[in-house]
Simulated scan of single mutants.
Amino acid sequence: MNPLVDIRRLDQSLWLDFISRKVLQNGELKRRIDEDALRGVTSNPAIFEKAIGGSADYDDTIKAQAEQGKSADDIYMGLAVADVQAACDLFKELYDSHDNSSDGYVSLEVSPRLAHDTAGTTAEARQLWQAVSRPNVMIKVPATLEGLPAIRTLISEGVNINVTLIFGLDRYKAVTEAFIAGLEDRVKAGKSLARIDSVASFFLSRIDVLIDPQLDKIVAAGGDKAKLAEPLIGEVAIASAKVAYQLYKEIFAGARWQALADKGANTQRLLWASTGNKNPKYDDLKYVEGLIGPKTVDTVPVETMDIFKERGKPADTLEQGLDQAQAVLRDLPKVGIDLDAQTAQLEKEGVQKFIEPFGKLIDSVEKKRAAAVDGAKQTA
C-alpha cells in the first residue's frame, strides 16, 4: 500500500514543490510519476536558487552561454525554461490521458520583482508561455491587486495560470472572479475554453507561523481572552482553507458558472501551498492529512512527500469539522486579531521572500557567468 497512490481515490492530486536538473536527469522525477502517482510540479525563485546557485549541475551550461555573451538574467531564463520543458515532457502522457483531471502541469513563476506591475507581469507571463511552448505549463502569477487584472487578461488569452501567494478569503474570491471573467472574455471573443486550466494556491503554514505567537501572548496574559485564544493556536490556516473550499463549491456552481461549464470550462481548483510544517510542535503532515478532498491539489516539498509515503493516512478530511473552522475565524477578532490585516502582511512578506532568493539566484548566475568570461579571456 502506498498512501501517495491511495490519495487519488479521494480525487486529490499531489504535486511536488521542487525541480532541479539532477532529478530530471537521474530518473527520480520519472520514478515519482510512475510509482507515487505524482501529478504535477511547482517551482519558485527559492527552489531555482537552491538548484542553480547551490550546485554545479548547471555550470557547464552557464559557461557556454556566458561565452555567447548572454546576461545573467537571460542565462537564468534559459536554464529555468529548459528544466520546465523537460519536466513538462515527463508529464505529457498524464496530461494527454482521458482522465488527467486537469493534472500533468509544471509551474514556472513570473519574476517576483513584477508583483506590483500589471503590465510587466502580463508581458513576462506571455514571454514564458511562448518560451516553454508546452501545453502543460502553468505560469505563476501572484494574487496581488496588480496581479488580478493580469490573471484575467492571461486567462482570456488561453494561458494556464497558477495564482500564487493567496493568504486570505477575500483575495481568494477576487482571484476566482478574475479567472471567471477571463473565461467570459474568451467566450465573447469566440474562442474555445477547452484545456484551459488554473489553480488558486492558498498558502497555509505561514499563516500559523505569523498568528500563533500572537495567540501565545494572549494566552500568557490570562483572562477571558486567553480562554478564547487557546483553542485557536495552530488552527487558523486549516480553518481558512476549509472555509475557502466551501467558497469554491459556491462559486463554481449556479447559472453563471454553468454557462461556462457548458462550453467546456474546468473549475479553478484550490491548491494547498506552503504545506511543509514549520513548527516542531505540529505533526509534519498537518497541512496534508487535514485537507484531503475532491477537486483539490496539495503541493508538497520532497521531505513532506516522503513522510506521507511512509506513514500518511489518506482520508476525506477537508469538510470535517467545518463548524469548528468557521468558529475559529469568528473568534479571532474577539481576541483582537484582524485576519485581513494579518493576510495583507503575509502577502507583503511573501513577495519579499521570493524577491530575496531571486536576487541571490541572479547574483550567483552572474558570478559564474563572470568567472566563465574571465576564464575565456585568459585562455584567448
Score class of each variant (00 low, 15 high):
Pro3Asp: 03
Val5Asp: 10
Arg9Gln: 14
Leu10Thr: 08
Leu10Asp: 00
Gln12Met: 13
Ser13Asn: 11
Val23Glu: 11
Leu24Val: 10
Lys30Arg: 14
Asp36Met: 13
Arg39Gln: 14
Thr42Asn: 02
Thr42Cys: 05
Asn44Thr: 06
Ile47Trp: 03
Ala56Tyr: 13
Asp60Lys: 10
Lys63Asn: 13
Ala66Cys: 10
Lys70Leu: 12
Lys70Met: 14
Ala72Gly: 04
Ile75Trp: 12
Tyr76Gly: 07
Met77Leu: 15
Ala80Arg: 07
Ala82His: 03
Asp83Ala: 08
Val84Asp: 06
Gln85Ala: 13
Leu90Thr: 09
Leu90Trp: 02
Phe91Tyr: 03
Glu93Asp: 15
Ser97His: 07
His98Thr: 15
Asp99Phe: 03
Asn100Ala: 15
Tyr105Asp: 01
Val106Gly: 00
Val110Gly: 03
Arg113Pro: 06
Thr118Arg: 04
Ala123Thr: 12
Ala123Cys: 11
Ala125Trp: 00
Ala125Gln: 00
Arg126Thr: 04
Leu128Trp: 06
Ala131Lys: 11
Asn136Gly: 05
Asn136Gln: 12
Asn136Cys: 08
Val137Gln: 05
Val137Cys: 09
Pro142Trp: 12
Pro142Val: 13
Ala143Pro: 01
Thr144Pro: 03
Leu145Ile: 15
Glu146Arg: 08
Leu148Asn: 01
Pro149Val: 04
Ile155Ala: 03
Glu157Tyr: 12
Ile161Gly: 08
Val163Tyr: 00
Thr164Gln: 01
Gly168Ser: 02
Leu169Ala: 01
Tyr172Phe: 13
Ala174Phe: 03
Glu177Cys: 02
Glu177Leu: 11
Ile180His: 04
Glu184Thr: 09
Arg186Lys: 07
Ala189Ile: 13
Lys191Asn: 08
Ser198Ala: 14
Ser198Met: 06
Arg206Thr: 07
Arg206Pro: 00
Ile207Cys: 05
Asp208Cys: 01
Val209Arg: 10
Leu210Glu: 10
Ile211Gln: 04
Pro213Gly: 07
Gln214Trp: 07
Lys217Ala: 15
Lys217Gly: 08
Gly223Asn: 09
Ala226Lys: 05
Ala226Gly: 04
Ile233Trp: 01
Val236Leu: 07
Ile238Thr: 13
Ala241Ser: 10
Ala241Gln: 02
Ala244Phe: 04
Gln258Tyr: 07
Gln268Gly: 09
Ala273Glu: 02
Ala273Met: 02
Asn277Cys: 12
Asn279Met: 06
Leu285Cys: 10
Val288Ala: 09
Gly290Lys: 06
Lys295Tyr: 14
Val300Gly: 06
Val302Cys: 01
Val302Gly: 04
Met305Thr: 05
Met305Lys: 02
Ile307Asp: 09
Lys309Trp: 04
Glu310Trp: 07
Arg311Ser: 07
Thr317His: 01
Glu319Arg: 05
Gly321Arg: 01
Leu322Cys: 01
Asp331Asn: 14
Asp331Ile: 07
Leu332Ala: 02
Lys334Ala: 08
Gly336Ile: 09
Asp340Val: 14
Thr343Trp: 00
Lys353Leu: 15
Lys353Ser: 15
Glu356Pro: 00
Leu361Asp: 02
Leu361Phe: 06
Val365Asp: 02
Val365Arg: 11
Lys368Ser: 11
Lys377Asn: 12
Thr379Ala: 15
